[in-house]
């Protein structure tokens, strides 16, 4: 078990290396250099600028620059934002918590919706409840997040006014602090989280449904039935438990999915998270920020996938790495 995990992590090291080189080369192609974030080019003499560039190693060969860049990145130094003239790390740190809480709420909602619906769908397959749920999951698969958001925003935020639109917290609640602050945060996150969750559940629902239907025909369930185990118990003890085990491992993939979805979701809802920061920094040509975010997201995606694999191995002993 530990060997497997260690091996998976060891395989990651060369992959992360290649990824960092790739991102570095991408960053090299981006306009601007380290000085752009520190100096106002209009007030500095060109000779001085050139001097500084030499001093900062702007003309070094790429591998030297790469080593410096990755060394700084590991220490959490991603340079300075061109636009805000602030360290990239600080800008991202301000947004990271927002994305984290929104992501957490989304993943929670996904499972709160998907597990009951998936179980119902499988338990009563080909009956009206299953039909209704399947219908919903087909729509969920066919509706892009943006489209759903465009339907939900006018209804819940504008017409009914149940949820605020934009931002992550009410300024008044911010000053009140405590429980008000928490509730305001939650209030701001609910609609975006709901939007993302509603379109992300389909896969888990369909998976659960087909697992349950398969297990119903499996030999051990037939045996249990012929022994006279009550129907309720067959489902609760034999079918649901087995069907739900692999779902636990989807958590990692859900995190990955929610993260990649955050770029779109946060932009639609003007929610000040890392995804929104990414889009705005690209628009502002603030490449150090964008680049650091890509690296961060890649690390998070890899961690999510690794987490899923490890959970799956823990919960399902049948799966052994070859």
């Amino acid at each position: 078990m530990w060997k497997t995990i260690v091996r998976r992590i060891l395989i990651l090291i060369p992959q992360m290396f290649v990824l960092s080189v790739f991102l570095f080369l991408l960053a090299e192609r981006m306009p601007g250099d380290a000085l752009t974030g520190m100096i106002d080019p209009t007030t500095t003499r060109p000779e001085r600028l050139e001097e500084l560039r030499h001093q900062y190693g702007f003309y070094d060969p790429w591998h030297v620059k790469y080593t410096r860049w990755i060394g700084n990145a590991v220490r959490g130094d991603f340079g300075r934002s061109f636009y805000h003239k602030l360290p990239v790390t600080r800008i991202i740190a301000d947004r990271a918590a927002n994305t984290f809480w929104l992501g957490l709420l989304t993943v929670l909602l996904i499972y709160l919706i998907a597990i009951p619906l998936g179980i119902t769908s499988g338990r009563f397959h080909d009956k009206p409840p299953d039909r209704a749920i399947s219908f919903y999951s087909y729509f969920a698969m066919a509706t892009p997040t943006i489209v759903l958001a465009l339907f939900l925003i006018p209804l819940f935020a504008f017409r009914l006014g149940w949820f605020p639109f934009g931002g992550s917290v009410d300024p008044r609640a911010f000053s009140q602090g405590g429980i008000h602050y928490f509730l305001s945060r939650l209030h701001h996150m609910l609609l975006p989280a709901m939007t993302a969750a509603l379109v992300s559940t389909a896969y888990i629902i369909q998976y659960l449904r087909s697992e349950i239907v398969d297990y119903e025909q499996s030999d051990f369930v037939t045996t249990a039935r012929s022994k006279g185990v009550p129907q309720r118990q067959i489902y609760s003890r034999h079918i649901f438990r087995n069907a739900l085990i692999p779902v636990a491992s989807f958590v990692g993939y859900s995190i990955t999915g929610v993260l990649s979805g955050s770029v779109l979701l946060e932009t639609i809802y003007s929610y000040p998270g890392m995804g929104e920061l990414f889009v705005s920094s690209i628009t502002l040509r603030d490449y150090p920020v964008a680049n650091a975010l890509i690296l961060l997201f890649a690390v998070l995606v890899v961690t999510g996938t690794l987490l899923s694999d490890i959970i799956l191995r823990i919960v399902d002993p049948r799966l052994k790495i070859k």
Partner: peptide, 22 residues
């Protein structure tokens, strides 16, 4: 498979956005 693994750990949407903007 190593190449495929590498691509699948990329935040694709973000990288596509960067490339398009470049």
């Amino acid at each position: 498979m190593r190449v495929v693994d590498f691509f699948s750990m990329l935040p694709i949407l973000m990288i596509v956005i960067v490339i398009v903007s470049l």
